[in-house]
Computed example of a mutant assay.
Amino acid sequence: MGYDFTDADLDFMHSEVGMEALDAADGLEFGTRTAVRDISSIRERFPAHAGALIETVTVRRKARVKLLDSDRWWVTDEAVQQATPTLVARRRAARLAGRRVHDVTCSIGSELSVLIGTAELAVGSDLDPIRLRMAAHNVPDATVLRADALTPTTRDTVVVADPGRRAGGRRRHDPAALQPPLPDLLDAYRGRDLAVKCAPGLDFDSVDWAGEVEVVSLDGGVREACLWSEGLSENGVRRRAAVLRSDGGVFEITDSESDDIPVRPPGSYIVDPDGAVVRAGLVRHYGARFGLWQLDPRIAYLTGDTVPAGVRGFRILEQAKFSEKVLRQQLNRMDCGSVEILVRGVDVDPALLRPKLKLRGSVALSVVIARVDRSAVAFVCAPGAVGQPV
């Protein structure tokens, strides 16, 4: 659940003594072998605020990869868990560059810290007074105020919102159960330019939304979906996938492109599109751009004789109708000792299947099991490899 900060904790951390205490705590390891000793040391030296010091230092360390330049931030564990990764926030900020922006659920300021560098004006608000004080500390150049996200408090601004998706450590998936509820948020700002961060697993078709849905991944992991109002999206675009990499690489595709691809027997490779492409419903558009085709119209795997640059592909060695016995025989004949198993459209649990294969060889292989023409087919492949520029 994490530590519940108080105003007294923040007053202390803002003082010269408190900053020295944070530096002292930051000098401790808090590792598996030293945690008990280090925690005892902080409790002995700073008994009134030990919990705040320990939480701040340990959560900062966990946040470093996700939230860049946050080494001196005030943070809570729950706020960091929901916070937008800096590289994803930069993408949203780039789309809003030069605009006046109001983050109505600013929490500890992870979005504000990026918006302040690109927006004409960046305002943050939140109902939680502790998180609001943290945001003011973390992003001192931003304007912050206490306000209910469902009560418009600025004019002529783009509204950015990130409804809370956790309660008691558990994720909420019902749009009406978010905080604030997504339907209420959309009603409160109807007619305004609005960008709402949502979980990528949200059922977008169940939301009354006429604008764009953008699904964003970072380094292969799907991070979020963002609802962009019509005034913030390109004309005619309803779905977009953005594939980001930490090295600065960006790939985009939208439903404005052609999705005209055939369904044909497999080529030399099976291609597994990035999760953002799949979640955005743009697999066919992706295939059309790269000259790929479908194995089955209902399955997200694509196939072709080449693999797009930077994308993982599996070179097909053998294929057969799936059965545990046949697959075990194939893999043993190929001297397989370890196997990666990918499944789509078939009720197979890789964790349960793997030990049943009784592999004893020395070769690493990949197995892709997919539904093709209503039957389960197993493709034995060379280990997945990333396509290179042609």
Score class of each variant (00 low, 15 high):
97 A>K: 09
375 S>N: 15
250 V>C: 11
298 R>Y: 13
261 I>E: 06
330 Q>S: 12
93 A>I: 01
63 A>H: 04
151 T>R: 09
115 L>K: 04
377 V>T: 09
146 R>V: 13
298 R>L: 14
267 G>R: 05
230 E>N: 00
127 L>C: 11
94 A>Y: 00
117 G>R: 13
72 R>E: 13
132 L>Y: 06
143 T>P: 12
279 R>I: 01
171 R>W: 11
57 V>W: 00
218 L>K: 01
147 A>L: 12
108 I>H: 04
22 L>E: 04
29 E>C: 09
103 D>H: 06
196 V>W: 01
274 D>P: 03
129 P>T: 15
65 V>A: 15
234 E>H: 06
188 A>Y: 07
109 G>D: 04
319 Q>W: 12
271 V>G: 03
12 F>Y: 11
153 T>E: 14
161 A>R: 04
362 S>M: 10
289 R>D: 07
332 N>C: 09
71 D>R: 15
194 L>E: 05
378 A>H: 05
263 V>L: 12
64 R>P: 06
342 L>M: 15
298 R>T: 15
228 W>F: 12
48 A>S: 15
205 D>F: 09
365 L>F: 06
38 D>H: 00
278 V>F: 04
253 I>H: 01
15 S>V: 01
159 V>H: 03
367 V>L: 08
346 V>W: 08
32 T>D: 10
78 E>Y: 03
340 E>T: 08
317 L>A: 09
5 F>H: 04
40 S>A: 14
322 F>Q: 05
8 A>R: 14
81 Q>T: 13
210 A>S: 09
179 Q>F: 10
31 G>T: 11
185 L>P: 00
369 I>F: 09
32 T>V: 09
304 G>S: 07
178 L>H: 05
352 L>K: 15
330 Q>W: 15
108 I>S: 07
212 E>F: 00
384 G>C: 09
362 S>A: 14
383 P>E: 15
219 D>G: 12
359 L>M: 08
217 S>R: 01
185 L>H: 06
174 D>E: 04
302 L>Q: 03
144 V>R: 02
305 D>R: 03
362 S>L: 12
272 D>E: 15
342 L>P: 06
18 G>K: 01
369 I>K: 05
367 V>K: 02
72 R>C: 08
372 V>K: 03
141 D>M: 15
168 G>N: 11
29 E>L: 11
382 A>K: 12
308 P>S: 07
347 D>L: 14
134 M>S: 05
280 A>I: 05
315 R>I: 08
307 V>F: 04
95 R>N: 13
166 R>H: 10
369 I>G: 06
234 E>L: 12
239 R>M: 10
42 I>P: 01
129 P>N: 15
77 D>G: 13
252 E>D: 09
257 E>W: 15
134 M>T: 09
247 D>C: 08
145 L>E: 11
218 L>V: 06
195 A>H: 06
3 Y>D: 04
62 K>T: 12
